[in-house]
């Protein structure tokens, strides 16, 4: 009986991991198309429309193109680290999705199935941990290329990520104070209906959102690949699918960051009228994905609207605005929790 249970659990988790992996890659691939479509709409153009209906086959054509390109490696590059860096970046990006609750428990074949790979009781810290590892792919890749522009970019990226992780962590502490848990599933369960954390944490959400933009290397914080100053940034010397991995992993990071925003601040799979039935569970999943896609759209909207920061402005904003604001937010939240709980 126990063996049967473990086998079923193992099978369920394997299928879930596989499905999540496929969905993540699919969303990331179509986010590249969406990015170009959004950019086109904002600049009053049509965007890619030659491959398939509405250009829907464009991501597949892009993938094939990446594989067909010559895989060039500079002579002076650090061979192993140069090869390892894109893989490490991709691996870290894919790992983060494991703790995100995508929906309520569904009952399949008479047993409850949670739409989450692992319900760690420190889920939010797991996400912070893996985000902080994301910088290694950029740093090692930039250094191993043995190119001055790449090195500059790697140094910029690492300084930026460390600075913004701090404010991000401080903004999350306020949420943890409010909910009293580090588990993402419990956080989502507490936000039933429209009782979302964003109503209690508007400032915290704003800080977290800005930091998420910076952590994903998205405009207006894309200093690491600032093409007007650094050619292509840390992936200047990369070509073929190695370059593809770097670009693709950034879209995965964006997808995961938006999912985290949806779960932590916008109630995850919750919406008014969520019922625990089978259909209701699926609706929760749809709502969760809709919220995530909305934030992906906001990320793109910002990219094609705002100009890039200067590097010193970036550091000013991180250390002198966001960190103190996050601390004030922490103090206010602590006071409110203390007053309303006693």
């Amino acid at each position: 009986m126990f063996l049967l249970f473990t086998t079923a659990l193992l099978l369920e988790k394997s299928i879930l991991v596989l499905a999540l992996f496929t969905v993540t890659l699919g969303v990331a691939a179509y986010a590249t198309l969406a990015e170009r479509k959004v950019a086109a709409a904002m600049q009053d153009r049509v965007g890619p429309n030659r491959t398939g209906p509405f250009g829907l086959l464009q991501p597949i054509a892009d993938g094939v193109k990446f594989f067909m390109k010559e895989d060039f490696m500079p002579n002076s590059a650090e061979r192993w680290l140069y090869i390892l860096a894109p893989g490490a970046f991709m691996f870290v990006a894919c790992m983060t999705s494991a703790v995100i609750p995508w929906g309520t428990e569904l009952t399949l074949f008479g047993r409850p199935v949670a739409l989450q790979v692992a319900d760690l009781n420190i889920g939010i810290l797991y996400i912070l941990g893996f985000t902080s590892l994301g910088v290694y792919g950029v740093m090692v890749g930039g250094w191993a290329s043995n190119n001055k522009y790449s090195l500059y970019s790697a140094i910029r990226a690492s300084a930026q990520m460390i600075s913004y992780e701090l404010a991000m962590g401080l903004a999350l502490i306020a949420v943890v104070m409010l909910t009293g848990t580090l588990s993402l599933r419990e956080m989502a369960e507490q936000q039933a209906g429209l009782n979302w954390n964003v109503w209690y944490q508007p400032l915290g959400f704003l800080i977290f959102f800005v930091c998420a933009l910076a952590e994903c290397n998205r405009a207006p914080f894309d200093m690491a690949e600032c093409e007007t100053e650094l050619i292509g940034g840390y992936h200047t010397e990369y070509s073929s699918m190695k370059l593809g991995f770097f670009l693709f992993a950034e879209y995965i990071n964006m997808f995961i960051a938006c999912a985290v925003i949806a779960v932590v601040y916008f109630g995850g799979y919750n919406f008014p009228g969520l019922d625990p039935s089978w259909l209701g569970g699926l609706m929760g999943l749809v709502v969760m994905l809709a919220k995530t896609f909305f934030f992906i759209f906001v990320f793109m909207w910002i990219r094609w609207t705002l100009p890039r920061f200067r590097y010193d402005q970036l550091m000013q904003l991180g250390w002198k605005t966001l960190v103190p604001l996050a601390m004030v937010n922490m103090l206010l939240t602590g006071t409110f929790v203390l007053v309303f709980e006693s």
């Binding site: 912070l128 941990g129 902080s132 590892l133 090692v140 790697a154 690492s158 460390i162």
Partner: peptide, 26 residues
């Protein structure tokens, strides 16, 4: 000790070693 493991990663791998690497690259 999951908490200790994650904090170990965040502090040492995510912050201290990034700074080490930062200085060595410079």
């Amino acid at each position: 000790a999951q908490f200790l493991a994650v904090v170990h990663i965040i502090v040492y791998a995510g912050a201290v070693m990034v700074l080490f690497l930062f200085v060595l690259m410079l």
